[in-house]
Design a binder for these strands. Structure first.
Lengths: 144, 144
DNA sequence: TAAATTTGCTTGCGAATTGCAAGTGCAAAT
DNA sequence: ATTTGCACTTGCAATTCGCAAGCAAATTTA
């Protein structure tokens, strides 16, 4: 697992070195939009990630400071994965991906509501969700 | 090369099925920001893509209607790859990636100017670059 | 006009990555 | 005390990647 393989200094290239694969952004999506926070949560995603791939992706995201692995407040058998601010800052990218698909594909109805809200007032949507997520992570670190 | 392997109906997942790899977005980047348009152009990128990978990515982008492969106006030995509107619509995503890296990494000075411009007035930046790119593709199709 | 070069690929092959199934070790519930 | 749950790890076959070489058609050079 080579994770220091910067191919160039280009920001796009560097970003893709970090999350340019089929799974990393889905884990972030699950944490942002579906409040998933444990290994088991991520395994249940409808895309069906393999256990070893999930482990390696979580490690990669941790290496790149996009997530943090904390003790689970309710159980020592679990770990609690939380977003970093760096990861929360990916939200605009993820929202733009949603808006792109909205323009060019059929979208499942469950998700349409979220996209509609994001389209209505993008800045407000980003701002309030970001605020909420940041609140969440400080609460978790303080064990609330 | 399976290209119809939708893992789920999730927009993020579907998008990653299309451009969630280490190379596809770099090709789009080269076309948008560096006016690259031929196989040889893409090969010269500083990240160093392998010839077979480039061929397969170009095919994938074409299959997904992100690029079109046209006859080259100056030579029958070449092909001219052009962006579709669908690909130009990826620009907001790419710009948000630039802005994310600007916040969290050191950026090479050559690129800082572009990012600064994008930050100053994002909507105007997107609008004018989009317009310019769309103009470019209609010109190419009309053989100007 | 013949030879060399350019262009856009394809092919072969070893190495790395992926994904499925099974197993492991610790914690918690029964 | 035993079973279940959780977070992985391991083994292995299959796919994908990436380097090097090859190739045919078009173009340039001699």
């Amino acid at each position: 697992m080579e994770r220091n393989k910067k191919r160039s200094e280009c920001p796009i290239s560097c970003s893709l070195d970090i999350f340019g694969d089929k799974w990393s952004l889905l884990i972030i999506r699950d944490m942002i939009f579906f409040q998933k926070s444990t290994y088991g949560d991520f395994l249940k995603s409808s895309e069906g990630i393999a256990t070893n791939i999930l482990a390696s992706r979580l490690q990669g995201l941790e290496d790149n400071k996009l997530i943090e692995k904390l003790e689970h407040p309710n159980s020592k058998a679990k770990f609690l994965y939380t977003l970093s601010e760096k990861a929360i800052d990916l939200l605009p990218i993820i929202v733009e991906i949603y808006l792109w698909t909205d323009k060019h594909f059929e979208i499942p109805t469950e998700i349409k509501a979220t996209i509609k809200e994001a389209k209505k007032d993008k800045n407000e949507f980003l701002k309030s969700l970001t605020k909420q997520l940041k609140k969440q992570i400080t609460e978790r670190k303080n064990g609330i």
